[in-house]
């Protein structure tokens, strides 16, 4: 636990110092939100269409930020051989994985905190009463993105493919997160709560997928970073 906190604190401190990652993923996300919101402005009169637009805007922004963020968070350790120093310091691969996933999740949550309000500026129908529930859905999505993204980024940077390879690798594994997240968000925006069994199913899918992926990835991460 001590190593986990030390690693996360180091990553956040590095990000705060350089601002490199935060700036790039924030701009990406903001651009996505603005473009999709502005492009879909004429259909906002239609409540149903509006829900689809908001749900897709939120999740496309999260997907962009997730792919870029995961790569950079792992790349910090590959650059200048810092990963070797961490291995020599006795950091266990599973702790390293959880630390990288946590850092990624914190950064994504920060980006969502800034971009979600912008999404709602373009929508008149949504009330702020759903924000806590929406935050819960996004939290599950962020956890899933970070868990999958960290593993895929480790594979991708090891192969030298960086973001191009990551985009190909990550998509199939993110399907459950994207499906669950988008469907749960749409239901929430339409009904204001998770009332029907359909939305409960998607939420359960997100929770189970996150837990299973975190557990399995913690065990196999060793094979991705050990030579």
């Amino acid at each position: 636990m001590r190593d986990l906190l030390t690693l996360v604190a180091k990553d956040l401190r590095l990000q705060a110092k350089t601002g490199e990652l935060l700036a790039s993923i924030f701009i990406y996300s903001l651009l996505v939100v603005l473009i999709l919101s502005l492009a879909s402005a004429p259909v906002h009169g239609n409540m149903r269409e509006g829900i689809h637009v908001i749900a897709s805007t939120l999740w496309v922004a999260l997907a962009f930020a997730g792919v870029v963020g995961a790569t950079r968070v792992i790349e910090i350790e590959r650059r200048d051989d810092c990963l070797k120093s961490l291995r020599l310091a006795g950091v266990s691969p599973s702790i390293l994985y959880l630390a990288k996933t946590t850092t990624n999740a914190i950064l994504l949550a920060g980006i969502q905190f800034l971009t979600v309000p912008v999404t709602f500026v373009f929508d008149d129908a949504t009330t702020f009463a759903i924000v806590p529930r929406l935050a819960f859905v996004l939290f599950l999505g962020i956890a899933g993105f970070s868990a999958v993204g960290t593993v895929m980024a480790a594979i991708s940077t090891r192969a030298g493919g960086r973001e191009s390879l990551l985009s190909i690798l990550i998509l199939p594994l993110l399907v459950p997160v994207l499906l669950g997240g988008i469907e749960a968000t749409k239901t929430l925006l339409a009904e204001g709560a998770f009332l029907n069994p359909n939305s409960i199913f998607w939420l359960k899918l997100l929770v189970v997928y996150d837990i299973v992926f975190l557990a399995v990835a913690s065990l196999v991460f060793e094979y991705l970073i050990e030579e």
Partner: peptide, 23 residues
Amino acid sequence: RDPSVVRRRIGFVSHQPGLYLDF
């Protein structure tokens, strides 16, 4: 099989810095 504890007793100087250059 997990050599983490033993590795902590080793100091290694290699070609690459293994340091965070922004720190």
